[in-house]
């Protein structure tokens, strides 16, 4: 190790002439929080008489956004490595069906859980292996996988929904409330806390950010970047599988339409939250807020009485504006 004698008298330290800028609180990292609060305040005032601020409605938002949030926290890892996973929506549908079929075939709640999560993990594994072993861009792999998995979900029961008559499963994975707290909110918070710790406090999380920040540098530093990428795709697979289970539990059925278009909401939530689409920078809490914000906007627009077409347009506009605003702030 270097010794202290390196500080020989008369030596000038490296860059002592350049004063280090004081680290100031970087407000642009928190832009999504301000935006979220802004949206909440706007709807609270304009929709006060329509019951927007009622506990029921707010808990409803939590229920509606749970699946997006859970997939979002996993997607945060994928996007942090500079990759993308478009197959999560389709995986959700297939997982809801395999879980429902397992329960229908008498494997019980545990069987349903294993089938749903297993489905997600298999999709994630295939994605991850294709991306790391055959070095195919994740956009293409998961775009292809999105179609394949969706097709399988339609084919497996010939587009018929599969009812779930297992009240424990339905309670625990979607429909239940603990006291007045929806079980979906509990799952969301558990997933967020676990993912936050994983990203911020473990070497896996650090290596995920390193991989996205500069892949070759990470490799030179001893990060097994391919393993990291495989892991993050297993993560989105697992989360999509779990989201499928939650859809099934909430609707008491498996159905191929579940999760339709969710991949875009999930990616929007992650990017709105402040994770960089180019990799290297990620935030799980930001993703949760991004997801809640999208859910809140949806909810508010419905209460306002806007129809689906108007909702879609306004939602799209808000996402573009929020990201553009964040980008502009970053430049200054």
């Amino acid at each position: 190790m270097p010794s202290k004698e390196i500080n020989a008298p008369g030596q000038v330290a490296f860059g002592k002439s350049k004063p280090r800028p004081v680290q100031k609180l970087d407000w642009r990292n928190y832009i999504v929080y301000f935006a979220f609060i802004g949206v909440l305040i706007y709807f609270s005032i304009s929709l006060f008489d329509d019951g927007f601020v009622s506990t029921d409605n707010l808990l409803n938002i939590a229920r509606q956004t749970a699946m997006i949030s859970i997939m979002g926290v996993a997607m945060t890892f994928v996007i942090s490595t500079g990759e993308i996973d478009l197959s999560v929506g389709s995986t959700t549908a297939l997982a809801s069906l395999t879980a429902a079929l397992a329960i229908q075939s008498g494997f019980g709640m545990l069987g349903g859980l294993v089938a749903g999560l297993g489905t997600g993990l298999i999709v994630g594994l295939i994605n991850g292996l294709l991306i790391t072993r055959f070095v195919i861009p994740s956009f293409l792999v998961t775009l292809g996988m999105m179609g394949i998995v969706k097709g399988m979900a339609m084919w497996v029961t010939d587009t018929a929904p599969v009812p779930i008559i297992n009240s424990a499963f339905n309670f625990l994975f979607g429909s239940g409330d603990i006291g007045s707290v929806p079980i979906l909110l509990v799952w969301t918070l558990l997933a967020t806390v676990a993912a936050h710790i994983l990203l911020r406090k473990t070497s896996f999380g650090r290596q995920t950010l390193a991989t996205g920040g500069n892949e070759s540098a990470a490799r030179f530093s001893g990060v097994k970047t391919h393993r990291i990428k495989l892991m993050v795709f297993l993560g989105t697979g697992l989360a999509a599988g779990f989201a499928g289970i939650l859809y099934a539990g909430r609707m008491h059925a498996g159905r191929y339409t579940f999760g339709d278009g969710d991949e875009l909401s999930v990616i929007a939530a992650v990017i709105l939250g402040g994770t960089s689409l180019f990799g290297g920078v990620g935030t799980v809490i930001g993703t949760l807020i991004g997801s809640l914000m999208i859910g809140t906007i949806n909810n508010g627009l419905i209460i306002m009485g806007l129809d689906v077409s108007q909702q879609m347009m306004i939602k799209g506009l808000i996402i573009i504006l929020a990201v553009a605003f964040g980008k502009k702030a970053m430049k200054n």
Partner: peptide
């Protein structure tokens, strides 16, 4: 060609994987 990750801090880079 530097083996540093620009988005991480100095300390995070120095102890990356260790």
């Amino acid at each position: 060609e530097f083996s540093l990750i620009p988005s991480l801090t100095v300390a995070q880079n120095i102890f990356l994987t260790r």
